[in-house]
Design a binder for these strands. Structure first.
Length: 378
RNA sequence: GCGUCGGUGGCAGAGUGGUCAAAUGCACAUGGCUGUAAACCAUGCGACUUCGGUCUACGGAGGUUCGAAUCCUCCCCGGCGCA
Protein backbone atom coordinates (compact mmCIF):
# COMPACT_ATOMS: atom_id res chain seq x y z
CA UNK A 1 0.00 0.00 0.00
CA UNK A 2 1.52 3.21 -1.15
CA UNK A 3 -0.29 6.30 -2.27
CA UNK A 4 0.40 9.95 -2.87
CA UNK A 5 -2.41 12.43 -2.85
CA UNK A 6 -1.94 16.07 -3.75
CA UNK A 7 -4.22 18.27 -1.68
CA UNK A 8 -3.23 21.65 -3.03
CA UNK A 9 -1.09 23.08 -5.79
CA UNK A 10 0.43 26.50 -5.36
CA UNK A 11 -0.39 29.13 -7.92
CA UNK A 12 2.81 30.96 -7.11
CA UNK A 13 5.33 28.17 -7.42
CA UNK A 14 5.70 24.45 -7.99
CA UNK A 15 4.90 23.82 -4.35
CA UNK A 16 2.23 21.35 -3.44
CA UNK A 17 0.62 20.10 -0.25
CA UNK A 18 0.13 16.37 -0.13
CA UNK A 19 -0.18 13.18 1.83
CA UNK A 20 1.88 10.07 1.30
CA UNK A 21 0.15 6.98 2.63
CA UNK A 22 2.29 4.03 3.66
CA UNK A 23 1.70 0.81 5.60
CA UNK A 24 2.89 2.66 8.69
CA UNK A 25 0.76 5.72 8.33
CA UNK A 26 0.66 9.00 6.53
CA UNK A 27 3.20 11.68 5.82
CA UNK A 28 1.97 15.21 5.38
CA UNK A 29 4.09 16.86 2.74
CA UNK A 30 6.24 18.80 2.32
CA UNK A 31 7.98 16.99 5.16
CA UNK A 32 11.36 17.11 6.74
CA UNK A 33 12.91 13.65 7.08
CA UNK A 34 15.35 13.20 9.98
CA UNK A 35 18.26 10.90 9.31
CA UNK A 36 18.55 7.71 11.36
CA UNK A 37 21.54 6.19 9.64
CA UNK A 38 22.13 3.29 12.00
CA UNK A 39 18.51 2.88 13.03
CA UNK A 40 18.70 5.75 15.45
CA UNK A 41 18.38 9.49 15.29
CA UNK A 42 21.53 9.90 17.33
CA UNK A 43 21.11 10.50 21.06
CA UNK A 44 17.32 10.19 20.88
CA UNK A 45 14.88 7.38 21.59
CA UNK A 46 12.34 6.65 18.91
CA UNK A 47 9.42 7.99 20.93
CA UNK A 48 11.36 11.20 21.53
CA UNK A 49 11.95 11.50 17.78
CA UNK A 50 8.20 11.15 17.30
CA UNK A 51 7.46 13.62 20.12
CA UNK A 52 9.73 16.12 18.37
CA UNK A 53 7.26 16.01 15.49
CA UNK A 54 9.02 13.69 13.07
CA UNK A 55 6.75 11.93 10.60
CA UNK A 56 9.20 9.70 8.80
CA UNK A 57 12.87 8.73 9.11
CA UNK A 58 15.50 7.58 6.67
CA UNK A 59 17.88 4.79 7.64
CA UNK A 60 20.91 3.61 5.73
CA UNK A 61 21.43 0.36 3.88
CA UNK A 62 25.21 0.47 3.86
CA UNK A 63 25.54 1.15 7.56
CA UNK A 64 22.88 -1.31 8.65
CA UNK A 65 24.36 -3.95 6.41
CA UNK A 66 27.70 -3.37 8.13
CA UNK A 67 26.11 -3.50 11.58
CA UNK A 68 24.12 -5.24 12.78
CA UNK A 69 23.48 -6.80 9.38
CA UNK A 70 20.09 -7.05 7.69
CA UNK A 71 19.66 -10.60 8.93
CA UNK A 72 19.67 -9.44 12.51
CA UNK A 73 17.28 -6.62 11.72
CA UNK A 74 14.95 -9.04 10.00
CA UNK A 75 15.25 -11.46 12.88
CA UNK A 76 14.25 -8.62 15.20
CA UNK A 77 11.05 -8.20 13.24
CA UNK A 78 12.23 -5.64 10.69
CA UNK A 79 13.46 -2.09 11.10
CA UNK A 80 10.22 -0.73 12.53
CA UNK A 81 10.04 -3.26 15.31
CA UNK A 82 13.79 -3.31 15.82
CA UNK A 83 13.97 0.40 16.57
CA UNK A 84 10.43 0.70 17.90
CA UNK A 85 9.47 3.35 15.38
CA UNK A 86 5.84 3.06 14.44
CA UNK A 87 5.65 5.64 11.69
CA UNK A 88 6.89 5.45 8.09
CA UNK A 89 10.50 4.67 7.30
CA UNK A 90 12.73 5.09 4.29
CA UNK A 91 16.01 3.36 3.61
CA UNK A 92 18.70 5.05 1.60
CA UNK A 93 20.35 2.64 -0.80
CA UNK A 94 24.03 3.10 0.02
CA UNK A 95 24.51 5.24 -3.06
CA UNK A 96 25.62 8.18 -0.99
CA UNK A 97 28.38 6.07 0.57
CA UNK A 98 29.78 5.52 -2.93
CA UNK A 99 30.63 9.19 -2.70
CA UNK A 100 31.20 9.80 1.01
CA UNK A 101 33.50 6.80 1.47
CA UNK A 102 35.01 7.24 -1.99
CA UNK A 103 35.97 10.55 -3.54
CA UNK A 104 34.40 12.47 -0.69
CA UNK A 105 36.84 10.90 1.72
CA UNK A 106 39.74 11.12 -0.73
CA UNK A 107 39.36 14.84 -1.29
CA UNK A 108 37.91 15.84 2.03
CA UNK A 109 34.87 17.41 0.45
CA UNK A 110 31.15 17.25 1.04
CA UNK A 111 28.71 16.95 -1.79
CA UNK A 112 28.11 20.68 -1.97
CA UNK A 113 30.92 22.95 -3.16
CA UNK A 114 31.02 26.69 -2.65
CA UNK A 115 32.98 27.55 -5.77
CA UNK A 116 34.41 26.14 -8.96
CA UNK A 117 37.24 23.72 -8.11
CA UNK A 118 40.70 24.01 -9.68
CA UNK A 119 40.87 20.38 -10.65
CA UNK A 120 38.21 17.90 -11.56
CA UNK A 121 38.07 14.14 -11.45
CA UNK A 122 38.49 12.74 -14.95
CA UNK A 123 36.49 9.84 -16.26
CA UNK A 124 37.96 6.45 -15.44
CA UNK A 125 39.39 7.51 -12.09
CA UNK A 126 38.72 5.28 -9.10
CA UNK A 127 38.50 6.38 -5.47
CA UNK A 128 41.29 5.18 -3.17
CA UNK A 129 39.34 2.92 -0.87
CA UNK A 130 36.45 1.68 -2.97
CA UNK A 131 36.08 0.32 -6.45
CA UNK A 132 33.19 1.22 -8.71
CA UNK A 133 32.44 -1.29 -11.46
CA UNK A 134 29.69 -1.53 -14.05
CA UNK A 135 27.82 -3.91 -11.80
CA UNK A 136 28.33 -2.54 -8.32
CA UNK A 137 30.68 -1.09 -5.76
CA UNK A 138 33.33 -2.78 -3.66
CA UNK A 139 33.64 -0.96 -0.36
CA UNK A 140 36.15 -1.16 2.41
CA UNK A 141 34.83 -0.11 5.77
CA UNK A 142 36.71 2.98 7.01
CA UNK A 143 36.30 1.64 10.54
CA UNK A 144 37.70 -1.88 10.35
CA UNK A 145 38.60 -2.39 6.70
CA UNK A 146 35.94 -5.02 6.15
CA UNK A 147 35.17 -5.61 2.50
CA UNK A 148 31.63 -5.10 1.43
CA UNK A 149 29.86 -5.21 -1.92
CA UNK A 150 26.76 -3.32 -2.95
CA UNK A 151 24.98 -3.50 -6.27
CA UNK A 152 21.42 -2.79 -7.34
CA UNK A 153 20.52 -6.37 -6.56
CA UNK A 154 22.33 -6.43 -3.23
CA UNK A 155 20.99 -3.08 -2.12
CA UNK A 156 17.41 -4.04 -2.89
CA UNK A 157 17.83 -7.42 -1.24
CA UNK A 158 19.13 -5.71 1.89
CA UNK A 159 16.47 -3.02 1.83
CA UNK A 160 13.79 -5.65 1.50
CA UNK A 161 15.18 -7.48 4.51
CA UNK A 162 15.21 -4.21 6.45
CA UNK A 163 11.60 -3.64 5.52
CA UNK A 164 11.21 0.14 5.33
CA UNK A 165 8.11 1.58 3.66
CA UNK A 166 10.13 3.38 1.03
CA UNK A 167 13.35 2.13 -0.57
CA UNK A 168 15.73 4.02 -2.81
CA UNK A 169 17.36 2.73 -5.96
CA UNK A 170 21.08 2.09 -5.71
CA UNK A 171 22.87 4.94 -7.46
CA UNK A 172 26.25 6.55 -7.57
CA UNK A 173 26.17 9.89 -5.86
CA UNK A 174 28.90 11.50 -7.94
CA UNK A 175 31.52 13.77 -6.46
CA UNK A 176 30.96 17.48 -7.03
CA UNK A 177 34.55 17.35 -8.33
CA UNK A 178 33.70 14.93 -11.14
CA UNK A 179 34.20 16.32 -14.62
CA UNK A 180 31.54 16.22 -17.32
CA UNK A 181 32.76 12.98 -18.89
CA UNK A 182 32.88 11.28 -15.52
CA UNK A 183 29.33 12.44 -14.85
CA UNK A 184 28.13 11.08 -18.18
CA UNK A 185 29.54 7.66 -17.53
CA UNK A 186 28.32 7.68 -13.94
CA UNK A 187 24.85 8.81 -14.93
CA UNK A 188 24.55 6.06 -17.50
CA UNK A 189 25.54 3.55 -14.85
CA UNK A 190 23.07 4.96 -12.34
CA UNK A 191 20.33 4.72 -14.95
CA UNK A 192 21.18 1.13 -15.71
CA UNK A 193 21.20 0.35 -12.02
CA UNK A 194 17.80 1.99 -11.59
CA UNK A 195 16.23 -0.39 -14.07
CA UNK A 196 17.94 -3.32 -12.37
CA UNK A 197 16.57 -2.29 -9.00
CA UNK A 198 13.04 -2.35 -10.40
CA UNK A 199 13.65 -5.68 -12.00
CA UNK A 200 14.90 -7.48 -8.90
CA UNK A 201 12.43 -6.10 -6.35
CA UNK A 202 10.19 -8.74 -4.81
CA UNK A 203 8.17 -6.98 -2.14
CA UNK A 204 5.43 -4.38 -2.17
CA UNK A 205 7.65 -1.75 -0.54
CA UNK A 206 7.68 1.49 -2.48
CA UNK A 207 10.80 2.15 -4.52
CA UNK A 208 12.06 5.59 -5.49
CA UNK A 209 14.33 6.06 -8.50
CA UNK A 210 17.14 8.59 -8.20
CA UNK A 211 17.85 11.43 -10.60
CA UNK A 212 21.47 12.53 -10.90
CA UNK A 213 23.34 14.73 -13.38
CA UNK A 214 25.40 17.07 -11.22
CA UNK A 215 25.30 20.74 -12.02
CA UNK A 216 24.50 20.18 -15.70
CA UNK A 217 21.01 21.11 -16.73
CA UNK A 218 20.98 18.90 -19.82
CA UNK A 219 22.08 15.85 -17.86
CA UNK A 220 19.59 16.57 -15.10
CA UNK A 221 16.76 16.80 -17.59
CA UNK A 222 17.87 13.70 -19.39
CA UNK A 223 18.09 11.83 -16.10
CA UNK A 224 14.72 13.06 -14.91
CA UNK A 225 13.05 12.00 -18.17
CA UNK A 226 14.64 8.59 -18.14
CA UNK A 227 14.10 7.83 -14.44
CA UNK A 228 10.71 9.50 -14.52
CA UNK A 229 9.52 7.14 -17.24
CA UNK A 230 10.25 4.07 -15.14
CA UNK A 231 7.58 2.58 -12.88
CA UNK A 232 8.91 3.88 -9.58
CA UNK A 233 6.50 4.92 -6.83
CA UNK A 234 8.41 8.14 -6.33
CA UNK A 235 11.68 9.85 -7.09
CA UNK A 236 14.74 11.04 -5.31
CA UNK A 237 16.91 13.85 -6.55
CA UNK A 238 20.52 13.44 -5.48
CA UNK A 239 24.02 14.72 -5.84
CA UNK A 240 25.06 18.32 -6.12
CA UNK A 241 23.47 21.06 -8.11
CA UNK A 242 25.90 23.95 -8.41
CA UNK A 243 27.53 26.41 -6.08
CA UNK A 244 24.66 28.30 -4.54
CA UNK A 245 21.09 27.99 -3.38
CA UNK A 246 19.80 29.71 -6.46
CA UNK A 247 21.25 27.15 -8.84
CA UNK A 248 20.04 24.36 -6.59
CA UNK A 249 16.55 25.77 -6.78
CA UNK A 250 16.71 26.17 -10.55
CA UNK A 251 18.01 22.66 -11.04
CA UNK A 252 15.29 21.22 -8.84
CA UNK A 253 12.71 23.06 -10.91
CA UNK A 254 14.10 21.66 -14.15
CA UNK A 255 14.13 18.16 -12.73
CA UNK A 256 10.68 18.34 -11.19
CA UNK A 257 9.22 19.65 -14.43
CA UNK A 258 10.28 16.41 -16.10
CA UNK A 259 9.08 14.05 -13.37
CA UNK A 260 5.52 12.71 -13.31
CA UNK A 261 3.74 15.23 -11.19
CA UNK A 262 1.45 12.76 -9.43
CA UNK A 263 4.32 10.96 -7.75
CA UNK A 264 6.23 12.17 -4.70
CA UNK A 265 9.71 13.66 -4.98
CA UNK A 266 12.36 13.45 -2.34
CA UNK A 267 15.32 15.79 -2.35
CA UNK A 268 18.22 13.81 -0.97
CA UNK A 269 20.40 15.32 1.69
CA UNK A 270 19.44 18.95 1.45
CA UNK A 271 17.52 20.85 4.07
CA UNK A 272 18.84 23.56 6.30
CA UNK A 273 15.95 25.68 7.56
CA UNK A 274 16.66 28.42 5.01
CA UNK A 275 16.42 25.80 2.24
CA UNK A 276 12.89 24.66 3.08
CA UNK A 277 10.94 27.33 1.17
CA UNK A 278 12.72 26.95 -2.14
CA UNK A 279 12.85 23.15 -1.96
CA UNK A 280 9.09 23.16 -1.56
CA UNK A 281 8.73 26.01 -4.02
CA UNK A 282 10.61 23.97 -6.60
CA UNK A 283 8.19 21.09 -6.11
CA UNK A 284 9.94 18.94 -3.50
CA UNK A 285 7.70 16.86 -1.25
CA UNK A 286 10.13 15.38 1.24
CA UNK A 287 13.77 16.09 2.01
CA UNK A 288 16.23 14.74 4.52
CA UNK A 289 19.21 16.32 6.21
CA UNK A 290 21.60 15.32 8.95
CA UNK A 291 21.91 18.92 10.09
CA UNK A 292 19.69 19.02 13.20
CA UNK A 293 21.41 16.17 15.02
CA UNK A 294 24.83 16.51 13.42
CA UNK A 295 25.12 20.16 14.37
CA UNK A 296 23.52 19.64 17.76
CA UNK A 297 26.29 17.33 18.88
CA UNK A 298 28.77 20.09 18.06
CA UNK A 299 26.85 22.68 19.99
CA UNK A 300 25.19 24.49 17.11
CA UNK A 301 21.62 25.31 17.97
CA UNK A 302 19.10 26.32 15.30
CA UNK A 303 16.76 29.05 16.43
CA UNK A 304 14.23 31.43 14.95
CA UNK A 305 16.99 34.03 15.00
CA UNK A 306 19.63 31.90 13.31
CA UNK A 307 22.34 29.67 14.66
CA UNK A 308 23.79 29.74 18.14
CA UNK A 309 27.04 28.20 19.38
CA UNK A 310 25.83 27.09 22.78
CA UNK A 311 29.32 26.10 23.96
CA UNK A 312 30.43 29.73 24.00
CA UNK A 313 31.35 30.92 27.45
CA UNK A 314 28.84 33.74 27.36
CA UNK A 315 25.90 31.35 27.39
CA UNK A 316 27.00 30.00 30.74
CA UNK A 317 25.25 32.89 32.42
CA UNK A 318 22.26 33.04 30.11
CA UNK A 319 19.06 31.87 31.81
CA UNK A 320 16.96 32.12 28.64
CA UNK A 321 15.85 28.99 26.74
CA UNK A 322 17.70 28.03 23.56
CA UNK A 323 15.01 29.73 21.51
CA UNK A 324 12.55 31.93 23.40
CA UNK A 325 9.92 31.44 20.70
CA UNK A 326 10.26 27.64 20.62
CA UNK A 327 7.57 25.44 22.09
CA UNK A 328 9.64 22.29 22.53
CA UNK A 329 10.02 20.53 25.88
CA UNK A 330 13.67 21.49 26.09
CA UNK A 331 12.96 25.18 25.68
CA UNK A 332 10.11 24.91 28.18
CA UNK A 333 12.38 23.33 30.75
CA UNK A 334 16.07 24.12 30.43
CA UNK A 335 18.22 27.22 30.15
CA UNK A 336 21.05 28.01 27.76
CA UNK A 337 23.28 28.14 30.83
CA UNK A 338 22.51 24.52 31.67
CA UNK A 339 22.87 23.20 28.16
CA UNK A 340 26.03 25.25 27.65
CA UNK A 341 27.47 23.74 30.81
CA UNK A 342 26.57 20.21 29.68
CA UNK A 343 28.09 20.71 26.24
CA UNK A 344 31.27 22.24 27.62
CA UNK A 345 31.57 19.37 30.07
CA UNK A 346 31.03 16.86 27.25
CA UNK A 347 28.02 15.48 29.03
CA UNK A 348 25.97 13.33 26.69
CA UNK A 349 22.76 14.87 27.99
CA UNK A 350 23.82 18.17 26.47
CA UNK A 351 23.99 16.59 23.02
CA UNK A 352 20.66 14.96 23.57
CA UNK A 353 18.88 18.14 24.65
CA UNK A 354 20.42 20.04 21.75
CA UNK A 355 19.46 17.28 19.31
CA UNK A 356 15.89 17.22 20.51
CA UNK A 357 15.53 20.96 20.22
CA UNK A 358 17.09 21.13 16.75
CA UNK A 359 14.95 18.26 15.54
CA UNK A 360 11.84 19.90 16.91
CA UNK A 361 12.88 23.14 15.29
CA UNK A 362 13.31 21.54 11.87
CA UNK A 363 9.98 19.76 12.12
CA UNK A 364 8.28 22.94 13.26
CA UNK A 365 9.79 24.74 10.28
CA UNK A 366 8.27 22.08 8.03
CA UNK A 367 4.89 22.56 9.67
CA UNK A 368 5.23 26.28 9.10
CA UNK A 369 6.17 25.59 5.50
CA UNK A 370 2.95 23.63 4.95
CA UNK A 371 0.98 26.41 6.55
CA UNK A 372 2.55 28.95 4.24
CA UNK A 373 1.72 26.86 1.19
CA UNK A 374 -1.82 26.46 2.50
CA UNK A 375 -2.01 30.25 2.89
CA UNK A 376 -0.76 30.78 -0.62
CA UNK A 377 2.46 32.43 0.49
CA UNK A 378 4.76 30.02 -1.33
C1' G B 1 66.72 27.43 61.30
C1' C B 2 69.42 23.81 58.12
C1' G B 3 69.17 20.80 53.78
C1' U B 4 66.90 19.81 49.28
C1' C B 5 63.78 20.30 45.01
C1' G B 6 61.14 23.78 42.51
C1' G B 7 58.76 28.83 40.79
C1' U B 8 57.77 29.19 32.55
C1' G B 9 52.01 32.19 28.73
C1' G B 10 44.44 31.55 31.52
C1' C B 11 45.78 26.28 33.53
C1' A B 12 48.90 21.85 33.30
C1' G B 13 53.69 21.11 31.57
C1' A B 14 58.38 20.82 28.03
C1' G B 15 62.72 23.63 27.34
C1' U B 16 68.25 24.31 30.86
C1' G B 17 73.57 29.63 26.99
C1' G B 18 72.08 31.47 20.66
C1' U B 19 67.90 27.98 15.76
C1' C B 20 62.60 30.78 21.99
C1' A B 21 57.27 34.86 21.71
C1' A B 22 58.92 29.75 24.12
C1' A B 23 57.06 22.23 22.44
C1' U B 24 52.62 19.64 23.77
C1' G B 25 47.85 19.14 26.03
C1' C B 26 43.66 21.64 28.10
C1' A B 27 40.85 26.05 28.12
C1' C B 28 39.19 30.00 25.00
C1' A B 29 37.85 32.27 20.09
C1' U B 30 36.67 32.08 14.96
C1' G B 31 35.45 29.41 10.55
C1' G B 32 33.60 24.96 8.27
C1' C B 33 29.99 21.12 8.36
C1' U B 34 23.38 19.77 3.92
C1' G B 35 21.02 11.13 1.27
C1' U B 36 26.29 10.83 9.05
C1' A B 37 33.58 7.86 8.04
C1' A B 38 32.03 12.94 12.10
C1' A B 39 30.47 14.43 20.54
C1' C B 40 34.40 16.06 14.12
C1' C B 41 37.83 19.14 11.22
C1' A B 42 40.71 23.70 10.24
C1' U B 43 42.81 28.23 11.97
C1' G B 44 44.10 31.64 15.79
C1' C B 45 45.53 32.39 20.86
C1' G B 46 51.70 38.62 24.61
C1' A B 47 51.24 43.79 22.48
C1' C B 48 51.81 46.92 18.28
C1' U B 49 52.57 46.61 13.03
C1' U B 50 53.33 50.16 6.67
C1' C B 51 53.08 42.36 7.86
C1' G B 52 59.31 43.24 6.73
C1' G B 53 59.42 43.61 11.59
C1' U B 54 59.43 46.38 16.53
C1' C B 55 58.68 46.07 21.69
C1' U B 56 57.57 43.50 26.38
C1' A B 57 57.93 38.58 28.61
C1' C B 58 59.89 32.56 31.60
C1' G B 59 58.97 34.76 40.64
C1' G B 60 61.99 39.83 41.92
C1' A B 61 66.59 42.69 41.76
C1' G B 62 71.44 42.72 40.22
C1' G B 63 75.56 40.33 37.56
C1' U B 64 78.56 37.18 33.88
C1' U B 65 78.37 37.02 28.41
C1' C B 66 78.65 39.45 21.79
C1' G B 67 74.03 36.83 23.43
C1' A B 68 70.34 34.48 29.39
C1' A B 69 63.89 31.26 30.42
C1' U B 70 68.66 28.69 30.54
C1' C B 71 74.99 30.37 34.26
C1' C B 72 76.24 33.32 39.14
C1' U B 73 74.69 36.35 43.69
C1' C B 74 71.03 38.08 46.93
C1' C B 75 65.83 38.41 47.95
C1' C B 76 60.60 36.63 47.81
C1' C B 77 57.27 32.34 47.45
C1' G B 78 56.01 26.91 47.54
C1' G B 79 56.81 21.30 48.24
C1' C B 80 59.50 17.68 50.91
C1' G B 81 63.11 16.06 54.72
C1' C B 82 65.67 17.04 59.32
C1' A B 83 65.67 19.93 63.70
Amino acid sequence: MFEFKILKRSKKSRARLGVITTPHGEIETPAFVPVATRATVRTLESDEVAAAGSQVLICNTYHLHTAPGEKNVKRAGGLHHFMQWKRPLMTDSGGFQVFSLGFGKDHGVGKILKEEPERRIPEGTQPTHIKITDDGVHFRSPIDGTELYLSPKESIRIQEALGADIMFAFDECPSPLADEDYLHTSLERTHRWAAQCLKVRKTSQALYGIVQGGGFKNMRIESARLIGALPFEGFGVGGEFGYDKRSLQKMLEHVHDELPENKPRHVLGVGHPEDFPYIAGAGGDTFDCIAPTHYARRGTIFTSKGRLQIRNQRHLTDQKPLDPTCSCDICKTYSRAYISHLMRAYELTGMKLASYHNLHFFNAQATLLRKRIQNGEI
